[in-house]
């Protein structure tokens, strides 16, 4: 009877020890948000003026903005936030909300932008007023393959 009791105690102890050593602390690594890059050649796929669609009214197909490193270049210009080539920067490389263009020899101009993925492709939506301040234009840009 005493022997049975000891065996039970030993089994209980073994179970408790095995449970204790089976637990180990896992270190949860914080996931690193990828740095956003807009390097590449972008074209306008949608444009509006004061909320009215401009698609089909003006040829936006040739306009390109090329981001390369910290530089940008405009090709076949259209009214845009800047008129000349220059440099650009994002306010936060991981979570950018604002893009700043500095055309050569001009003041820096910033605008809020969004950077969604639509149908598997990254888009860049910029809103700006190149003429009268009350006239607001929104261009949706997509990278050219």
């Amino acid at each position: 009877m005493i022997r049975n009791l000891n065996i039970k105690r030993i089994l209980l102890l073994l179970a408790a020890v095995s449970m204790a050593i089976s637990c180990k602390t896992e270190k949860v690594l914080p996931s690193q948000e990828a740095l956003k890059t807009i390097t590449g050649n972008w074209q306008v796929i949608k444009a509006s003026r004061n909320g009215t669609d401009l698609d089909g009214l003006l040829d936006f197909s040739k306009f390109r903005i090329q981001f390369d490193g910290t530089n940008y270049k405009l090709v076949d210009k259209l009214p845009f936030i800047v008129n000349q080539n220059g440099t650009f920067s994002l306010d936060d490389p991981q979570y950018p909300f604002k893009i700043t263009f500095t055309a050569t020899g001009a003041q820096a101009v910033s605008t809020v932008f969004t950077y969604p993925i639509v149908n598997g492709k990254r888009q860049l939506t910029l809103t700006f007023s190149p003429g009268c301040p009350n006239n607001s234009y929104t261009y949706v840009l997509q990278q050219v393959n």
Partner: peptide
């Protein structure tokens, strides 16, 4: 349109 605009706007 827009009724008030500059030469750097897109006008219709």
């Amino acid at each position: 349109d827009p009724p008030k605009s500059l030469d750097n706007d897109i006008v219709s």
